[in-house]
Design a binder for these strands. Structure first.
Length: 303
DNA sequence: CGTATTTGACCCGCGC
DNA sequence: GCGCGGGTCAAATACG
């Protein structure tokens, strides 16, 4: 990725098709990426859906977690009552009699320690799911380089699909962002990437200055929309209604998926848009600046 | 030799 | 309760 450059083409995107083709060049090798918005596919909302749909209705407890809750992590965790802890069938095993201290016990202690370790994970009241979004990319490469470093921690066969699903975790310390990558069984040329969570650190590629960061005014719009999105709130309409479809897509993707790439697309789109109407982009210097990601805030304003 | 990947085992939730 | 499928862990292995 050291000498990577990115440029996009075909920005005349039909609104209904919602796709665009881009070329990524890294160390002399070019690859064509066709970004496709996943609309109602794979059970996930599309990026545009997330950004433009009204907020989901309040959950109905009696029905358990809804799909929307599952996808956004927006559900209430019911803590176990103190009394219910006695139900644990293994609690007796974890407190053996004090006078038993032979080798067998040592072995058992080790086993118990292992069990405890597992139990600590098991006992976690429903693991909170981070907000997720997915999109499709036409690519021959399964794992697309998005500027971040990932460590693969699992791979599973997918039912009704000849292609496995890979699980990746961001290698940055304290960044729990995960992503799943799988190839579509319907169209093997398409890679489905699902991000869960949000990076808690700047993109290493961006920090090296290899990619263009969009102008501040547009960054504010992006930052505002993203923060609303990740707080499971509906972004104000003025965030997006003046953007072109591809611009909106790039805006959404720039949050955590392809910040380095989409910001470049974004700038190109912004440039085009500004020629159409310079006043289309709402500038908001209020509390929004506090919500703009750090990596974006760094950019000095020069307009 | 350190780091990344592979892979089988395991946990968990859900439906029957 | 049981089986199934998705997700994660961690030891073994590969790789630079």
């Amino acid at each position: 990725m050291e000498n990577a450059t990115f440029y996009s083409s075909d920005h005349q995107i039909p609104t209904d098709f919602r796709a665009f083709t881009s070329v990524f060049e890294s160390d002399g090798e070019k690859s064509c990426w066709e970004f496709l918005d996943i609309h109602d596919t794979y059970g996930y909302p599309s990026i545009l859906d997330l950004l433009t749909m009204p907020p989901p209705p309040p959950p109905k407890p009696e029905l358990g977690r809804s799909l929307t809750q599952e996808l956004t992590g927006d559900f209430t965790v019911t803590p176990a009552t103190p009394n219910s802890s006695s139900i644990s069938s293994s609690s007796n095993d974890e407190q053996p009699k004090a006078d038993e201290k032979d080798d067998e016990k040592q072995d058992q202690d080790e086993q118990n320690a292992a069990k405890k370790k597992l139990k600590a994970r098991k006992k976690n009241p429903k693991r909170l799911r981070e907000p997720r979004f997915a999109f499709m990319t036409k690519s021959e490469v399964d794992h697309l380089d998005d500027g971040y470093r990932w460590r693969k921690y699992g791979q599973k066969a997918v039912k009704n699909s000849p292609f496995p699903r890979s699980y990746y975790r961001c290698t940055a310390a304290a960044c729990g962002l995960k992503k799943r990558v799988e190839r579509s069984s319907e169209d093997p040329t398409v890679v489905v990437t699902t991000y869960e969570g949000q990076h808690t650190h700047p993109c290493p590629v961006l920090s090296r200055g290899s990619f263009v960061i969009p102008p501040e005014s547009s960054v504010n719009i992006l930052g505002q929309a993203h923060q609303y999105l990740y707080q499971q709130q509906q972004p104000p309409l003025h965030c997006f209604h003046d953007m072109t479809p591809s611009l909106r897509f790039a805006a959404a993707a720039s949050n955590s998926a392809f910040p380095n790439i989409s910001s470049t697309i974004f700038e190109e789109e912004l440039f085009k848009s500004s020629h159409i109407s310079n006043s289309n982009f709402v500038r908001d210097d209020g509390l929004l600046q506090d919500m703009v990601p750090l990596q974006m805030q760094k950019e000095p304003k020069e307009e």
